[in-house]
Design a protein around this nucleic acid. Structure first.
Lengths: 341, 341
DNA sequence: CTGAAAGCGCTTACAG
DNA sequence: CTGAAAGCGCTTACAG
């Protein structure tokens, strides 16, 4: 059943039916009701492509899987995407994911020229991220999950990584730790930069050294968490506390601690950033893990809303948010052992 | 730049330009080259919505995040989706993910009536899955990742879960284990049913008992892996080997083993199913984990191809594949300890 | 408050 | 081998 048939059935014009369905104010109340009734009865749904062509809107938000960055490998992306899908479910806007064939830039160009999306969501931004100026040039509205260096005319939603890791580090220092290691994500990513900065500042504020050797980074897998923790433990003066940028790295660090005879909590304090992944809940581990927590799914939902607003022509400058991050204290953090202080 | 402008610039009709661009055979070679050249020069891209409207194809594959099932919580979904995106990258078909607003069935109805997708991909199928008959009724082609009970007129790609777990169980039994526990996914899912069947058959084939108490199931999180393993260990005659349906559950089982003083490999043999998640590589754990392995990303890519074929009108009956699963032997599996036999 | 008609940008019989 | 024209199913000035 299409609009024409529905209109004929009702003895109305397509114009009126279309207006009634789209909630235009000038349609009479009884007409509107009749139309709504019939639409329901016949399960009428406007053809998505036709509507898009007529309105000029693509009716979709785009996300490109960038093979280069660690996005693909990142299990938390499922939660993020679920959030985006949640956030856009209210509108009739689709979420369109695509894999770059060849060049990632080419994929965005294609999107722009084919008008297949109204706005783009950028994940895992680099400090210097070429996608931002590219999208600018293509006049494709975009919202960044995270931030890039330049406060380019771009919307973003980030969590306060700097403050989160400043707090976590400060808390550990206040417990008496003097050597606090950092197991971070790849240094090109803004979140990693911010977290290291938070770590460094908290140490500096307390007059503690922040030697580069204490801050390591690599893609956030279990294996890398293990490897980096081992490296840190092998130092002449190994850290008594560790902060990990992901729950996966934390798992690896816990394994490294065990392998080197350290009891988490007692011999080694551990804090991890938790994105709220259901598959691994830090509060259920032994011991329960102290975390900096922020739901990545909630972020995804809000990002979809922002993208939708941009698609409607909202001002990007007004759509910039930095969310606070909770520090959740649990059993994995204690004062350092006597002999290590 | 649109088709009309491009045609005017070339001094040709829209018809010819369209045909040249779409590779129709009747276009002259020089004309085709001229057109291709100009299209490249002006970065011409046909408007996606217009093309869709004209051809009647939606140019998209649909995936619905079903809040009810564990899909959302499943980190491996990222890998699957990346595969789907890979597999569809060659065509100009988008992958559209959506969150069900309200009823999941309603979401499919909407997709069907709005013609927003050409085919649907179904993840995490239940043994009895209402989505299959629904999609049938809506005449929306679909491909199942996994299987449902009824060999409904539906395409699918599954891995041979039964054979995989039969092999793994058989291997453990051949090493001398007599009590082999199973930590499985939720029993409503077909993969869980098949895995339990494989486990049961391998035991039966060797005259070993397969008491229901040895086969546990729950959503495959670290915590559940831990909890179920604990339960199994508390039995009068605890298992000397465990097979886990996911790497996350295996992580939990390893933790439970440690907590109960069991050394993996020596005191407790462990096998896990590995989907090929980059964040946790079983070969890098201590000890390296024996696994049944199948790349979920590769499956996603093939599923996209199948969905594309269905969208072109291919016969679903010809598009059914069951992939073999590798059994990769590593350090976590050994003969049981003497005193436990 | 309602309708006839143009237009969105393509594809594709049909005619030559 | 090429083109004029209809049509895909909507939305939306414009007129009444």
């Amino acid at each position: 059943m299409n609009l024409k048939e529905l209109a004929e059935h009702l003895g109305l014009s397509q114009t009126t039916v279309s207006r009634a369905l789209n909630g235009f104010p000038e349609v009479g109340e009884k007409t509107r009701r009749r139309v709504a009734e019939a639409a329901r009865e016949f399960h009428y749904r406007p053809n998505a492509s036709a509507r898009k062509l007529a309105t000029g809107r693509a009716g979709a938000l785009g996300i490109v899987f960038s093979t280069g960055r660690n996005l693909l490998l990142d299990p938390i992306f499922t939660d993020f995407l679920a959030g985006v899908a949640d956030g856009s479910a209210g509108s009739d806007t689709d979420v369109l994911v695509s894999s770059p064939r060849g060049d990632e830039a080419e994929t965005y160009r294609r999107m722009a020229r084919a008008h297949s999306v109204d706005a783009v969501i950028l994940s895992s931004p680099l400090v210097e991220d070429a996608r931002v100026p590219l999208l600018q040039r293509l006049r494709l509205p975009c919202v960044v999950h995270g931030r890039t260096r330049s406060t380019a005319p771009c919307a973003f939603l980030d969590i306060d990584n700097e403050e989160a890791f400043r707090n976590a580090t400060g808390m550990l220092a206040d417990l008496g730790h003097r050597r606090i290691g950092l197991i971070n994500g790849d240094p090109g990513f803004t979140f990693a930069l911010h977290r290291e900065r938070g770590w460094r500042e908290a140490l500096a504020a307390r007059g503690l050294p922040a030697p580069p050797a204490l801050a390591r980074s690599a893609p956030m897998t279990e294996e890398n968490g293990y490897r980096l923790a081992r490296t840190l433990f092998e130092a002449a003066e190994p850290p008594t506390a560790l902060i990990c940028s992901s729950i996966f790295a934390a798992l690896g660090a816990m394994r490294a601690a065990r392998d080197s005879g350290r009891a988490i909590g007692r011999d080694l304090s551990l804090v991890a950033h938790d994105d709220g992944l259901a598959a691994i809940r830090p509060e259920t581990l032994t011991p329960a893990l102290t975390t900096t927590f922020s739901s990545i799914r909630a972020a995804g939902a809000r990002i979809a809303e922002i993208a939708l607003a941009l698609a409607e022509g909202a001002d990007p400058a007004a759509l910039r948010e930095v969310w606070p991050v909770d520090l959740v204290f649990r059993g994995s953090t204690m004062p350092p052992p006597r002999d290590a202080a």
